[in-house]
Computed example of a mutant assay.
Amino acid sequence: MNTADSPAPTQRIVTVLASAVALVSILSLAAVLIQYMVGATPFTALMAVGLYGLPVAFILLIVLVLLRVRDRRRS
């Protein structure tokens, strides 16, 4: 039963996925900064997650906005 206030399951999934990707990306960037401060060489995978994770999360948020606009136009 989908009311006007509750988002569709697709929107919930995209929201959770965008939040998780952004959180993991920010944590990996923090880990890279900590490794730089300690003087260690940061892992390449951590830098890649940080560099590509935030743009992916931003794209997912744009998808979420487009899904909401589509649903509002239908109603």
Rank of each mutant, 00 (worst) to 15 (best):
M1F: 11
T3D: 11
A4Q: 14
A4I: 12
S6V: 14
P7E: 10
P7L: 14
A8N: 07
P9I: 03
R12I: 06
R12P: 00
V14G: 04
V14N: 02
V14M: 04
T15C: 02
V16A: 15
L17E: 07
A18P: 00
A18M: 06
S19P: 00
A22G: 01
A22R: 13
S25N: 07
S25H: 03
L27K: 04
A31C: 02
V32S: 01
L33P: 00
I34C: 05
I34N: 07
Y36S: 01
M37D: 02
G39I: 08
T41G: 01
P42N: 04
P42I: 02
P42S: 06
T44M: 14
A45D: 03
L46M: 12
A48T: 12
A48W: 08
V49C: 02
V49H: 04
V49Y: 02
G53Q: 13
G53W: 07
L54C: 02
L54V: 06
P55G: 11
V56S: 07
V56F: 12
V56T: 13
A57E: 01
F58S: 08
F58M: 13
F58C: 07
I59G: 05
I59C: 02
L60P: 00
L61R: 15
L61H: 10
V63L: 14
V65S: 08
V65P: 00
V65D: 03
L67D: 04
L67T: 05
L67G: 00
R68K: 15
V69C: 08
D71V: 06
R73H: 09
S75N: 08
S75I: 10
